[in-house]
């Protein structure tokens, strides 16, 4: 696999979820990403079409880590061309690894990295206090902080390197990932997120101190949504606490 082919596949992989469907999920995006490699490997149009149809079956994993599977499939397709592995084995490996890779991606990226990056962006705004009492937050700084940290330190390197890792380690990729002790990193990142958000909440609540009732309500809402989160969906919590706040504010102003 040459560099330019890798770049081409990376750009195409950005469309992975474009035609997401209930029958085969990300199959169109996966095949779309793989087409340059299939064309690179096979010159005959009939064989190319056959390969595209072969990979047009069910496929679903985490959209960023799908590139790992693209790398793996590319390596296995090369071996398949040399008759070192069968086509069934290529498809079996792809299907078998999609689940565990999706689980890693959901937990590490969706559930941890994205959330912590959101916290950082939000914390920048919250720390400026009510109506910018501590400092005047620049709107673009918060947005850029979120986007740059998320994409430059997580998303893009992961997507680009995943193709390379998948191609290099093929079936051993899950073993390699497990050696990273990912779970301990997840716990550490989450702890940092909790500290950032609590710190920002504290600074923000101090800026509300001119009205003690609002400060108390602010922390009461944090406590109640923490407790309700175990039983009720996020939007449900919002509506319950929204109405509760209206009642409290109305009663205390009568």
């Amino acid at each position: 696999m040459n560099f330019f082919l890798g770049i081409k596949i990376f750009f195409r992989s950005l469309f992975l979820q474009s035609v997401w469907n209930y029958e085969r999920m990300q199959n169109v995006g996966f095949v779309f990403s793989l087409i340059p490699f299939i064309n690179h490997l096979y010159k005959d149009k009939t064989v190319r079409a056959q390969k595209i149809k072969t990979h047009f079956g069910f496929f679903n994993t985490h959209p960023y880590l799908a590139n790992l599977l693209l790398g793996i499939v590319m390596r296995l397709e090369e071996k398949c061309l040399k008759n070192e592995v069968s086509q069934e084995e290529v498809l079996r490996t792809k299907t078998m690894l999609a689940g565990p890779i999706a689980a890693i991606g959901d937990r590490f990226i969706w559930s941890t990295w994205r959330v912590v990056c959101s916290f950082i962006g939000v914390a920048y705004y919250l720390c400026s206090g009510k109506e910018g009492v501590w400092y005047q937050a620049n709107i673009f700084v918060g947005i850029l902080l979120f986007l740059l940290i998320y994409n430059l330190l997580g998303h893009l390197p992961l997507r680009i390197l995943s193709i390379y890792w998948g191609y290099k380690y093929t079936n051993n990729v899950v073993d390699k990932i497990s050696k990273f002790a990912l779970q301990s990193y997840i716990v550490k990142i989450r702890n940092v997120g909790i500290i950032i958000l609590l710190f920002a909440s504290f600074i923000y609540s101090i800026s509300l101190i001119s009205d003690l009732k609002i400060v108390l309500l602010f922390w009461l809402n944090i406590l109640l949504s923490l407790l309700l989160s175990k039983k009720i969906a996020e939007v449900g919590i919002f509506y319950i606490l929204f109405l509760l706040n209206i009642i409290i504010l109305t009663v205390t102003n009568l």
């Binding site: 997120g193 909440s201 009205d211 309500l217 922390w219 809402n221 989160s229 919590i237 504010l249 102003n253």
Partner: peptide, 23 residues
């Protein structure tokens, strides 16, 4: 009724939800 003060309180709901997600 000072209900406009809600805009200062509403971020707390999300903060609680965010913390609960990690805790």
């Amino acid at each position: 009724m000072d209900l406009y003060n809600l805009i200062y309180i509403l971020p707390a709901i999300g903060i609680g939800i965010g913390l609960a997600h990690f805790v």
